[in-house]
């Protein structure tokens, strides 16, 4: 139990998916203009990452390993994640329209998110068992949420700041992202 908590904490702070591992940078920069949309996006990412971790674990150890075709991992995982997202979208639309509307366009957007594929591959690389994989997927989603919501908060403030013209828009956003990533490096000294 303690180990699972430590794994989650390490993933969120020390090995942050976006700011330390640099996975999922596209939505991190693209959907971080407002805190509201950032929260929606990261909720969807967390949800899909958790479910994808479970599904890819099953595919790896019940289909790929018995057949001896582990090298097809990437293709198989992309297929699984894409199908999963489609399926989840349908289920949500049917049973929880409110959640479906809240996640909206973000669900299909993360079908090909590298962070989702990344967490699936890392699960296997780290030889996690089913429970560890699930916790790792969930924590990875939370680490994405932490990073993108922090970043969106800063960007909202930047909107009303007096920024030199040549830095306005993406340049200042990239600099900010770099500064936040450097700040997160401070956690790397922590030992759990």
């Amino acid at each position: 139990m303690i180990e699972l908590l430590l794994l989650a904490l390490t993933t969120i702070l020390v090995d942050n998916f976006v700011l330390v591992k640099f996975l999922g940078c596209c939505p991190f920069l693209g959907v971080s203009k407002k805190v509201e949309t950032a929260v929606g996006m990261s909720l969807a990412v967390t949800f899909v990452m958790t479910v994808a971790s479970m599904a890819t674990y099953l595919v790896q150890y019940y289909i790929l390993v018995p057949l001896g075709i582990e090298y097809m991992q990437t293709v198989a995982f992309i297929l699984v994640i894409a199908v999963l997202v489609q399926f989840v979208e349908m289920v949500l639309q049917k049973f929880t329209p409110a959640l479906y509307n809240a996640l909206g366009i973000y669900l299909p957007l993360i079908t090909t998110n590298c962070a989702v594929l990344g967490v699936a591959l890392l699960n296997i690389q780290n030889q996690f068992n089913f429970i560890y994989s699930t916790v790792y997927g969930f924590a990875a989603g939370l680490s994405f949420m932490l990073a993108i919501v922090l970043f969106a908060g800063v960007r909202e403030r930047l909107e009303t700041s007096d920024i030199p013209e040549w830095l306005q828009g993406f340049p200042i956003a990239l600099i900010t992202a770099g500064l936040i990533a450097m700040a997160f490096l401070g956690f790397s000294g922590m030992k759990f």
Binding site: L67, V75, L79
Partner: peptide, 17 residues
């Protein structure tokens, strides 16, 4: 084998969807 396995996976997922 891999071709069959992945194609099978695809077909099963397709039917499920």
């Amino acid at each position: 084998y891999p071709v069959l396995a992945l194609a099978g996976l695809g077909v099963v997922f397709g039917i499920l969807l």
